[in-house]
Computed example of a mutant assay.
Amino acid sequence: MDTKRISSTLEQALSTQMNVELFQSHTYLSYGIWADDKGYGGIANFLMRHSQEEREHALKFMKYVLNRGGKPTVTGQSATPKDPQNMTDCFNLVFKHEVENTEKIYKLVDMAFEEKDWATWNFLQWFVKEQIEEETLAMDLIDKLKIAGGDQASDESLFTLDKTLGETPDEGELARNATSENP
């Protein structure tokens, strides 16, 4: 008896996204190593925690495909991008990666909608929400660095930023959580 409850097209697309998430994990890891090498242990910790989070996203895709009777395919990974030139470049690249990932998630949502695969469409809504958080967090990184002085930040400002990011939660503040007491 065939127990597969996902189209081959979506099975392949979700497998591809699983591999994208693994690549994102490696990218965050490489940026974390770069930051640590530059002496920014807090920023490295922040980026490495996000590396782990991206790996967990990959596992969600893997498990979902398996739960629908499909078989995800792990592919070889491309080399991670070259090291950022500076902290501004690093945070801008993080934001760029998140926006690109959001676009990929939206394409998957469109595919599920077109196929009327409501289980997959529903599964992907978690990732839509997650990408809002990821983009917000990336924008916050850029903003915090600008406030610290950007590429001309003093050592003291960078030290404070490094310490702050080492202690920053992994989720961004979202509008849906705002209240009149806590905008």
Rank of each mutant, 00 (worst) to 15 (best):
residue 15 S to Q: 06
residue 15 S to N: 01
residue 16 T to V: 06
residue 16 T to H: 13
residue 17 Q to C: 03
residue 17 Q to E: 04
residue 17 Q to P: 01
residue 17 Q to F: 03
residue 18 M to L: 14
residue 20 V to K: 02
residue 20 V to R: 15
residue 20 V to E: 12
residue 20 V to H: 10
residue 22 L to V: 14
residue 22 L to Y: 13
residue 23 F to D: 06
residue 24 Q to F: 00
residue 25 S to Q: 09
residue 25 S to D: 08
residue 26 H to L: 10
residue 26 H to K: 10
residue 29 L to S: 01
residue 29 L to N: 09
residue 29 L to P: 08
residue 29 L to Y: 12
residue 30 S to G: 03
residue 31 Y to F: 15
residue 31 Y to K: 01
residue 31 Y to I: 11
residue 31 Y to A: 08
residue 32 G to M: 03
residue 32 G to K: 05
residue 33 I to V: 12
residue 36 D to N: 14
residue 36 D to W: 07
residue 37 D to F: 02
residue 37 D to K: 10
residue 38 K to C: 15
residue 38 K to L: 15
residue 39 G to T: 10
residue 39 G to S: 02
residue 39 G to M: 06
residue 40 Y to R: 10
residue 41 G to V: 10
residue 41 G to M: 08
residue 41 G to I: 11
residue 42 G to T: 13
residue 42 G to V: 07
residue 42 G to C: 03
residue 44 A to S: 14
residue 45 N to Q: 10
residue 46 F to H: 10
residue 48 M to Q: 15
residue 49 R to A: 11
residue 49 R to H: 11
residue 50 H to I: 04
residue 50 H to K: 02
residue 51 S to Q: 00
residue 51 S to M: 13
residue 52 Q to P: 02
residue 53 E to F: 05
residue 55 R to Q: 15
residue 56 E to T: 07
residue 56 E to F: 02
residue 58 A to I: 05
residue 58 A to V: 01
residue 59 L to T: 14
residue 60 K to I: 00
residue 63 K to H: 13
residue 63 K to M: 08
residue 66 L to M: 09
residue 66 L to Q: 13
residue 66 L to R: 12
residue 68 R to E: 00
residue 69 G to D: 05
residue 70 G to M: 01
residue 71 K to L: 08
residue 71 K to G: 02
residue 71 K to Y: 03
residue 71 K to W: 04
residue 73 T to V: 15
residue 73 T to F: 04
residue 74 V to N: 08
residue 75 T to E: 15
residue 76 G to S: 14
residue 76 G to F: 04
residue 78 S to C: 06
residue 78 S to E: 11
residue 78 S to D: 13
residue 78 S to T: 11
residue 79 A to N: 12
residue 79 A to S: 15
residue 79 A to W: 03
residue 80 T to D: 02
residue 80 T to W: 00
residue 81 P to L: 00
residue 81 P to N: 02
residue 81 P to C: 03
residue 81 P to G: 02
residue 82 K to A: 15
residue 83 D to A: 14
residue 83 D to N: 12
residue 84 P to M: 03
residue 86 N to M: 03
residue 86 N to C: 07
residue 89 D to N: 08
residue 90 C to Y: 00
residue 90 C to A: 13
residue 90 C to P: 07
residue 90 C to V: 07
residue 93 L to T: 10
residue 93 L to V: 04
residue 93 L to F: 03
residue 93 L to I: 11
residue 94 V to D: 06
residue 94 V to A: 08
residue 94 V to N: 09
residue 96 K to L: 10
residue 96 K to G: 07
residue 98 E to S: 05
residue 99 V to P: 06
residue 100 E to P: 01
residue 100 E to Y: 04
